[in-house]
């Protein structure tokens, strides 16, 4: 659909654009957080403040906040400490060495007070892993020695499921460019589903396929971000708000689980 709209605009419109001064309505910055709970990983949180859209600064970390995490039985306060996830390359500015253990019976909460604002969220490990049935490697129709990797899953019919597929030689988002695709099972509930990556791979490449089983709130957050970005280029779109999983600000506080396989292209 996007290709169609862009093409129509190119064909139909003798368009032109120019830089203008835009005086946007006033904007009240909000606290923005990003925190993922993952089995065996320490507690890490990024806390920043959103900026007016045309501000000259790019990022505004918040370094003097009180960040309190609880699993219902034990409460920890994260300390200000710049740290980086070595695998994903993500940066965080609050840290606690406590390692997360997955417990689907627990409700995890986070409360942050900073810049005279309060932001809070809660999450659970309520999603279940959907396994990979099989992997398929296919050579590109148009380009010799270029390969796509396909994956087949069997979607459980008992509840709504939300998936994120990452396929790449590395999938750590740290300067790499894996295929990243999200889908809900609203269209294929209880059926088999197949997905193919771009034909980005060559012989002897080792390709990683990771499938996240997302919480609905996490899926909605990612979708709303995608919609917000696309709205910038589509004059006919009706932009929507970011669907944050936290209250009092913006951002994501969620648990993540996934399954992963590797395949070597022969």
């Amino acid at each position: 659909m996007r290709l169609f709209i862009v093409s129509m605009i190119v064909i139909a419109f003798v368009s032109c654009d120019k830089v203008i001064d835009v005086e946007l309505p006033p904007y009240e910055p909000e606290l923005v957080m990003e925190m993922y709970l993952e089995e065996g990983q320490p507690l890490r949180c990024l806390l920043i403040e959103s900026l007016p859209y045309t501000d000259t600064a790019i990022n505004k970390p918040v370094n003097n906040a009180l960040v309190i995490f609880s699993d219902g039985t034990k409460t920890d306060t994260l300390s200000y400490m710049i740290n980086q996830d070595k695998f994903t390359g993500r940066l965080f500015n609050y840290f606690h060495p406590r390692l997360i253990t997955t417990d689907s019976n627990k409700t995890y909460t986070l409360t942050i007070i900073g810049e005279n604002k309060k932001i809070s969220g809660k999450t659970k490990f309520s999603q279940k892993i959907t396994g990979i049935d099989s992997l398929i490697v296919r050579e590109s129709i148009s380009e010799a020695d270029s390969f796509s990797v396909g994956v087949i899953i069997s979607d459980p019919a008992d509840k709504a499921n939300y998936y994120r597929f990452l396929v790449g030689k590395t999938i750590n988002f740290f300067g790499s460019d894996p295929t990243d695709f999200r889908v809900s099972d609203i269209s294929f509930n209880g059926k088999k589903y197949s997905f193919f990556s771009e034909a980005d791979f060559a012989r002897n490449d080792t390709v990683t396929i990771r499938i996240y089983s997302l919480l609905k709130e996490h899926y909605d957050y990612l979708e709303s971000i995608g919609n917000a970005r696309r709205s910038n280029f589509n004059p006919f779109s009706q932009p929507g708000r970011i669907k944050s999983t936290v209250e009092g600000g913006l951002g994501i506080f969620t648990s993540i689980i996934y399954t992963e396989r590797k395949v070597i292209i022969k």
Binding site: Y53, I58, P178, D180, S231
Partner: peptide
């Protein structure tokens, strides 16, 4: 009206901003 950096995305995390 506002924007922020969101890291969980393909490519360099500071390449794109979230409106």
């Amino acid at each position: 009206l506002g924007r922020y950096i969101f890291q969980d995305q393909v490519g360099n995390r500071f390449e794109r901003i979230t409106p």
